[in-house]
Amino acid sequence: MSEELSLAATSLGHLASFHAMASRCEVLMRTADRELAYAMAHQVLQETRRIEKKYSRFNHTSLLSGLNANAGDWQNIDVETSALLVFSKQCFDLSDGMFDITAGPILKLWNFGSDANMPTSASIERALKHVGFGKLSIEASRLYLPLDMSLDFGGIAKEYACDRAASLLTLHYPHIPALVNLGGDIACASVAEKPWQVGIEDPSELNNATGTISLTGGGLATSGHTRRYLLNKGKRYGHILNLNTGYPVEGAPLSVTVKAANCLVAGMLSTIAMLKGVNAQAFMASQDIDFHICR
């Protein structure tokens, strides 16, 4: 058994866990067959690590880092990257330009934690000049990323990996219900006759649930700033940034949880709701989808 993948028997089958994408990841599988459960979990681990290796901006050898390093030139892109860019355009349009994968220059200025400091207004103003999805030129197999701009798939990569892993399990193990959980981004593999009960974390009492959501299929995602924020002169700044100003969104909920047809769409909607700030509730109500907002 791989040292990076742990497996334990449960009352419903097996639970596997591993670390990837800066998160604790789990796979719940309703099978008593330990070897089968391990094979399923290992497939999830491999697919998650593949996507992390390819699209992490923190990995200097990733495909994404290569695209950013060669900004200023036309570059070839594969089918998978092209599809992610198309989805990113949908995020950008639906959010009125607030959900933007070109936010890299401004994201690099902000650190969140006990020892973090506020960036200067001048540095924010300079960085915003190099942000804007509309400045990209995208063709089916080519991308032009202007000089001094960069891409960051951090807002969609984990949700995408979750859906991909669940899809592989559904393809190869269609009769075994499983739940893929990548740091709170969740997708169902195969249809579960008995619903999965997923807890919604209470922002005022972390690691405790304020409610549950039943899942038989599809995905679930939560966006929030209960764990990543900055305190400066008594004011709390969440980590979700308003790209019109370069500063954290004002009036955002503590968290937004969304249930959707897949994890990628759930993640997109929960993030956009956070970006809407005080209008989060109205935005989610217009989507005709299950959601839970904590303030």
Rank of each mutant, 00 (worst) to 15 (best):
M1E: 09
E4Q: 12
L5W: 04
S6R: 15
A8N: 11
S11M: 07
L15R: 14
L15Y: 05
F18V: 10
F18S: 05
F18L: 11
M21D: 03
S23L: 15
S23N: 13
C25N: 03
V27I: 14
L36H: 12
A37F: 01
M40E: 10
A41Y: 05
H42R: 15
H42L: 13
L45F: 15
Q46V: 15
Y55W: 15
T61I: 07
S62L: 03
S62F: 07
L64V: 09
L67R: 03
G72A: 01
G72Y: 03
G72V: 00
Q75L: 14
N76F: 08
N76Q: 14
E80W: 07
K89H: 12
C91K: 00
D93P: 00
D96Y: 11
D100L: 01
I101Y: 09
T102F: 10
A103S: 14
W110G: 11
W110M: 11
N111K: 15
N111I: 05
D115I: 10
M118N: 01
M118V: 13
K135G: 01
L136K: 12
E139W: 04
R142P: 00
R142N: 08
Y144D: 04
L145P: 02
D148W: 01
D148M: 03
S150V: 03
D152N: 11
F153E: 06
A157R: 12
A157C: 04
K158I: 06
K158P: 00
A161D: 06
A161Y: 11
C162F: 05
C162K: 03
L168W: 07
L169Q: 10
T170Y: 04
L171E: 13
L171T: 12
L171I: 02
Y173N: 13
H175E: 15
H175M: 09
P177C: 08
P177M: 10
V180P: 00
V180T: 10
V180N: 07
L182W: 01
L182N: 02
G184C: 06
D185I: 04
I186F: 08
I186T: 06
A187M: 09
A187L: 04
K194V: 10
K194N: 12
W196E: 11
W196A: 11
Q197S: 13
Q197C: 08
V198P: 02
G199K: 09
I200L: 14
I200H: 07
P203R: 00
L206V: 11
A209L: 04
T210I: 15
T210F: 00
T212E: 14
I213L: 15
S214T: 07
L215W: 07
L215E: 13
Y229H: 15
L231P: 01
K233V: 00
G234D: 02
L241F: 05
V249D: 03
L254H: 09
L254Q: 14
T257D: 03
V258T: 09
C263K: 13
L264P: 01
L264R: 12
A266P: 06
S270A: 14
K276A: 12
V278D: 13
A280K: 09
F283R: 07
M284V: 02
A285Y: 01
D288F: 04
